[in-house]
C-alpha cells in the first residue's frame, strides 16, 4: 500500500552522536631516543650515512635518501629562529591574557627544526634570524616530553 504523507508531530532532522576512541601512540624507535634525551637535558638527532644530514627531531630514516639513519647524535640546544608567530588566542579559541610567541627553531648543525615557545622576549622583539637557547625544566621535573624544554630565550 502506498499512502500520502501523514501529518507527523515533528520532522526528525538530525541524529546526535560522537566518535570517541582511546589512543596509545608509541614513540617509535627514533622518538624513544629523542624523548629519553630530553629527560637528560639533551637534544638528540639522527645522522644519515648517505648525505650526512642530521635530522631533528630524529627520524629512523633520512626522508631525502630513504636510508636508515645510522647514528644518534647530540645537537646543541642553541639555534636560530626560522619563522615565528604571535598567538593571542589559546587552543580552544579563548583569548590569552598575555600573547605568546611560537617559533620554528633550527638548531645549530641540524636539518629540520623544533616548534617551540619563545620566552623572556616581548612579541615585538622577536625576529627571523634571532639566536635562541633552550631553557630546561629542572632535572627532577623532566618527564621525557617536549615540555621538558620550558621555552627558548634570546641569546646575545
Amino acid at each position: 500500500m502506498s499512502l500520502e504523507r501523514p501529518r507527523l508531530p515533528h520532522e526528525i532532522r538530525h541524529w546526535f552522536g560522537d566518535m570517541e576512541c582511546d589512543y596509545v601512540y608509541t614513540l617509535g624507535i627514533a622518538g624513544e631516543k629523542f624523548y629519553a634525551g630530553l629527560k637528560e637535558g639533551r637534544i638528540i638527532g639522527s645522522k644519515c650515512p648517505s648525505c650526512g644530514a642530521i635530522w631533528v627531531p630524529p627520524s629512523l630514516y633520512c626522508p631525502e635518501c630513504f636510508e636508515e639513519t645510522s647514528e644518534w647524535v647530540e645537537v646543541p640546544d642553541e639555534g636560530t629562529v626560522y619563522t615565528f608567530t604571535v598567538a593571542y588566542v589559546g587552543p580552544d579559541g579563548e583569548p590569552l591574557e598575555e600573547p605568546e610567541v611560537y617559533a620554528l627553531i633550527v638548531l645549530d648543525g641540524a636539518n629540520g627544526g623544533l616548534l617551540h615557545k619563545l620566552g623572556e622576549v616581548r612579541p615585538e622583539e622577536a625576529y627571523i634570524g634571532m639566536r635562541v637557547k633552550a631553557v630546561w625544566a629542572p632535572e627532577g621535573e623532566r618527564k621525557g616530553a617536549i615540555t621538558d624544554i620550558k621555552y627558548f630565550r634570546p641569546v646575545e
Partner: peptide, 27 residues
C-alpha cells in the same frame, strides 16, 4: 613510553528525507 590521547569528535548527522521520515514513523 607512549603518549595517550582521547580525541572526541561530536557530530550532528543529517537524517535527510528518507531516514527522517523513517524515524518519525517509528515514533
Amino acid at each position: 613510553p607512549a603518549f595517550r590521547d582521547k580525541p572526541r569528535a561530536r557530530y550532528a548527522w543529517a537524517c535527510g528525507p528518507a531516514m527522517g521520515r523513517f524515524l518519525a514513523e517509528l515514533k
